[in-house]
Write a protein that binds this DNA or RNA. Structure first.
Lengths: 207, 207
DNA sequence: CTATGTGAACAACTTCACAGCC
DNA sequence: GGCTGTGAAGTTGTTCACATAG
């Protein structure tokens, strides 16, 4: 398939899922897989997996399937997570602590390198071994280190203002845990991590 | 629109987003809104909002717009979050602590009522004021209290086994923070809260 | 005159089905 | 024989545009 046409965002959204499944298979010692096996693991059709991959190239061998390590490399490169993006976290609360301690980004292309809070009593303290910096320094640090990715873990009331500061400082991707709708310019990517919304979506089907 | 036809899941997924926006408007003291205002806040078209709502009934007044409090009530009822679902959390780590302390479900239809771990040294301890129970008791507690909703916050290696136990005990909705693909029967709803995947999705557009 | 609710038109996405290669 | 890659067909989701109600 032409490698130049625009790839639907919905396809991009599935690549991390494929990558996770491949990691699992690799950890089990498997070397080769097929669109059918992946499809079964993930509950999607094998045709969808083949079609999704075809937006980016030809990664399989007909009659054989996909080399897992190779496909992992390719997908990592496509998603640009074949490197380590430095991430800033704003809001030194329990959630930031969980992210730093459990490090769910390890080996997935991201590393938390700076932690900010605006509450005077928190500034200078440590959280899970990481120093809490003054939010007043945020624009300077983001600019100097050229940070592009931020995680927002502040109360809803402050979220928009912090998002504005991040954007002004050059941040291009924000993952927000704040339970409020934010507004950012179109060149900045924004994702909400909203556990309450996920539960509400499932509640519809209960009973 | 016929209130009987099947509603696409993608529409259900947007209702919590609408609800969150309405909560924000209500907190700002507004009483009436329009599909256009909501659309602007959320970055979707006004037609989509009207169409989505039309699956469930007629909630607005032509020429006037929507009464915010009324629409909140209606959407809450549709999503079945006009009550409080009791939630069990499995895995007493930093993430469970963050969920209990920050309580992102407050006022959204869910309340954490039980916390389990399988590590002997953690059992009997307290986490953010909540007693850590022995995972061995999990099936019994889930059945006795008739719990339907679970949050999975255990290491990837244990996640599938815990999910199986939850399902066997009668859980119908699982929100998993484990970074691994799970398999559950079709009558059980499953959502992944995968921050790494969300960052990876945005990384594609960086640079 | 404003803003909803909704068929009809359109666009996006998914699945089918098969040629081509291993 | 098995499995990929992909146009074509089919399905689902979104936007248009307007009749209708306040």
């Amino acid at each position: 398939m032409a490698r130049f046409e625009k790839v639907p965002d919905i396809v991009i959204g599935r690549l991390p899922v494929y990558l996770r499944a491949l990691t699992r298979l690799a950890s089990e010692g498997q070397e080769i897989t097929s669109s059918q096996q992946l499809g079964k693991m993930l509950g999607v059709s094998s045709a969808q997996i083949r079609k999704d991959l075809s937006y980016f190239g030809e990664f399989g061998k007909q009659g054989m399937g996909y080399n897992i390590a190779h496909l992992q490399e390719q997908l990592s490169a496509i998603l640009k997570v074949d490197r380590e993006w430095e991430v800033v976290v704003v809001g030194a609360g329990p959630l930031a602590e969980a992210l730093i301690r459990e490090d769910p980004f390890a080996g997935k292309g991201f590393r938390i390198v700076a932690l900010f809070d605006s509450r005077p009593e928190r500034i200078g303290q440590r959280l899970a071994g990481m120093e809490i910096l003054d939010s007043a320094q945020l624009p300077e640090v983001v600019r100097q280190r050229g940070l592009k990715v931020a995680i927002l873990a502040v109360p809803a009331a402050e979220a928009q203002q912090v998002a504005d500061t991040l954007v002004a400082a050059g941040i291009k991707a924000i993952l927000s845990y704040a339970s409020t709708t934010l507004s950012v310019p179109p060149e900045v990517r924004l994702q909400y991590n909203d556990a309450a919304a996920q539960l509400q979506r499932m509640a519809y089907y209960l009973q």
